[in-house]
């Protein structure tokens, strides 16, 4: 069965790159450009994986993660955090908030594919 991935990323070019990489690897990728409708979409679509940018206009990635983890319906959904800042502080904050994986921009496409496969295996 194909893994369904929800990608929330405000940089359109990066969003397109990830969408292309994962689609070609057999994933079903939905994209959102900001955090506005993120929670509702996760509740409605029940994706196998949420890829979340840390710095989003509107609602930040960490806030979205916290809300996901607080909601019984969405609290088990695997979440991969993406960030361009790449400081240790941000990684810790993300892991504390309940992120399953943390990936720093820029990334290699192989790493992205491997991480998504690992997170969507079961």
């Amino acid at each position: 069965m194909t893994a369904r991935v929800l990608l929330i990323e405000d940089e359109p070019n990066i969003s397109e790159a990830i969408r292309f990489i994962l689609s070609r690897d057999g994933c079903d990728v939905m994209t959102l450009a900001d955090g506005q409708g993120a929670i509702a979409t996760v509740r409605a679509e029940r994706p196998d994986l949420v890829i979340l940018d840390l710095m989003l206009p509107g609602l930040s990635g960490l806030e979205i993660l916290a809300q996901l983890r607080a909601d019984p319906v969405t609290q088990t959904v695997p979440v991969m955090m993406l960030t361009a800042k790449g400081q240790g502080r941000d990684r810790e904050a993300a892991e504390r908030a309940g992120a399953n994986h943390f990936m720093t921009k820029p990334f290699s496409n192989d790493d992205m594919r491997a991480a998504v496969r690992a997170l969507t295996r079961e």
């Binding site: 990066i14 790159a17 800042k85 290699s108 496409n109």
Partner: peptide
């Protein structure tokens, strides 16, 4: 510095991802 890092990494991410796609 953190801001600069962010501002530099963002375009770099696109460039790296797409150049890898192209080479694949």
């Amino acid at each position: 510095l953190s801001q600069i890092s962010h501002e530099l990494r963002t375009p770099m991410t696109s460039i790296r991802a797409f150049s890898e796609i192209l080479t694949e």
